[in-house]
Design a protein around this nucleic acid. Sequence first.
DNA 1: GTCTATAACGAGATAGAC
DNA 2: GTCTATCTCGTTATAGAC
Lengths: 242, 242
Amino acid sequence: MSTVRGARERARIEVTAAIKDEARRMLAAEGAAKLSLRAVARELGMVSSALYRYFPSRDELLTALIVDAYDSVGAAAEQADANALAAAASGAGAGAGGGVPRERWLAVCEAVRAWALEHPHEYSLIYGSPVPGYSAPMDTVGPASRVANVLIDILRAALAGRGLALPPLPAALRPEAVRMTADFGTGLPPEVTAALVAAWAQLVGLISFELFGQFNRVVEDRDTFFAHAVDQLAHGVGLPAT
Amino acid sequence: MSTVRGARERARIEVTAAIKDEARRMLAAEGAAKLSLRAVARELGMVSSALYRYFPSRDELLTALIVDAYDSVGAAAEQADANALAAAASGAGAGAGGGVPRERWLAVCEAVRAWALEHPHEYSLIYGSPVPGYSAPMDTVGPASRVANVLIDILRAALAGRGLALPPLPAALRPEAVRMTADFGTGLPPEVTAALVAAWAQLVGLISFELFGQFNRVVEDRDTFFAHAVDQLAHGVGLPAT
DNA sequence: GTCTATAACGAGATAGAC
DNA sequence: GTCTATCTCGTTATAGAC
């Protein structure tokens, strides 16, 4: 946790960052499947074996990129949530919509989409098809849940406020919903947990369709379309418009 | 459209099928990014140049695989819909649920998921991250819309029956929804078109999360979870449970 | 101790001459 | 169609510079 140490540490951090930057560049050019340590080293004027001082294997480099991507989208979501919260607190009085939590929900969804459009290759890395031959280690679990944690926070606040409008769970799903809730330790009611997980998957589905070209020749005005879809998702987790 | 022609044609069809089969096998092993004509040829005991008599380029082979995948999932959806329709017609009287169109909707969604679980690599090929350097030609547009056409049919039938329960479109989305409806020529009302496109993207999002490992350590009882989510999607397109 | 460079391995892809 | 010479890759061992 020290900020300044020897020049050694600083140099190491810089080189590590340079390697990841270059790796990200080739991720965009060739895709994750063709990420090669040698090419990264070549582009950086190093020799391939030197990279092993920084990353013990190609897969660990990939893991670092994945963790960075999760952290990046997570930070974007947290930022958007904080902004929405601040705007609601200081801001234009009681918004016309369905309360502060709803504003936060919409802001976070939009922020995730905006991040995806700005970082399409990193988005593909974490939410697209898995990289053949690579299996994510546990290191990615924590960063992967940052966005989810933001959404959980919002729903918790909504629950403490005017509550959430959700239908009861079907009996068949209840045990699974209870288990998920216990595993996450969110303190949310099981029907909220279940609705949130589904909404999150559906949100990523909307973004993926846009990003992966499935909306070509189908949806033109994507901003408007997405805004409406996110509105429906808010309804799905119990945050109706009025 | 002739079924039997010379032995030449038959041989050509067989070899073409063998090439695609082998290509699918390496798709599973290495991913679409590393699909190489040479490797396919080697595995088939041919020489790479011989393959060019069947597929003029790697990209055309990829296109053929993509078209096949779309056709495969499209056929599965059509089959499931036909089965659901037959079951409802001959079957157990008025189902307890929300009518025949709703049964068809659920059946088709389940069928798409089942197809995806059975053909994960072909699913990745069409709904996962795009293959770097490859851009899909127009040949894929038709097959890509087969599943959508099934869903459109179901909603058209529902509309002719007891109708659909959908809220009015927000003003901002109306022009886009009208344009989409006109482009597809479905004859559905614009709010149905918009809801359908969103639901389709969300359905694929749910399946992708399951298939791409995003539900690991999160959702255990995936059958039940998916069934409930599809239920909510049905509600989203105006096919409520009761 | 920390880093980089050289060299090598075994496996696979690739281009071109034949 | 075949063969060969030349690439790339990930990874390791080793030796020397700071």
